[in-house]
Amino acid sequence: MLSVKGLHAFYGRAHILQGVSLEARAGEVVALLGRNGAGKSTALKSIMGLVPAARGEVTFEGRRIERLLPYRIARLGLGYVPEERRIFTDLTVMENLEVGRQSARGDAPVWTEERLFALFPNLAGMRDRPGGRMSGGEQQMLTIARTLMGNPRCVLLDEPSEGLAPIIVEQMAHSIRTLKGEGLSVLLCEQNLHFSQAVADRAYIVEKGQIRFGGTMAELASDSSLREQYLSV
């Protein structure tokens, strides 16, 4: 589905990604773990074309995409959910969803507003509320729903649990499992190990712009030294 080989990227002149390689297969949830500043967000932005790839290859469904503009990548069926949520604050919930709308893709699940409200029931009651007047958890749901309106095959999720209350984190995990059930691939960045364990099949650990570990969640769970070294304080 999505494969990244030797990706390098800079932010200004800071060399953030120093050769990242990873893979997400069809119908798989993959977590990209690491402390803040490790380069997780930049990896997702670079895959999406928002931060130019200086070197390396990104392949999505057999097509090289590292030189494409973000809108072209989005139209191939790769969805992106940013960390800062980037809700259009002046637009209502329905309008935010409208901006994300793309025509249906034959081989990907098709989303409508009503299906999304079933997935995120909190949103159903606030269709006409401006994005700027929603809580953090509601905005997080909206930003995911907005990306799903593009009927993607694969979604890049940047820190879906960040800053959310435990009950909302639980709901979020449930929603991500539902997406997997629909057959979507998900590549998510996380700092929250427990959350990742609840949703992901496999994980990579990023540290200082490089991949330090790649394996199943079970492998990660059985290796406490790995967790201590890269994730804990």
């Binding site: 928002l50 809108y71 259009f88 002046d90 935010n96 409208e98 901006v99």
Partner: peptide, 23 residues
């Protein structure tokens, strides 16, 4: 829809692009 795109792009055109809209 055009209006929603215009208002969204006024706030954050990069995000509008990432959602598949041709700038």
């Amino acid at each position: 829809r055009w209006g929603a795109l215009v208002r969204a792009a006024t706030q954050d055109r990069e995000m509008v692009g990432a959602l598949g809209v041709d700038q």
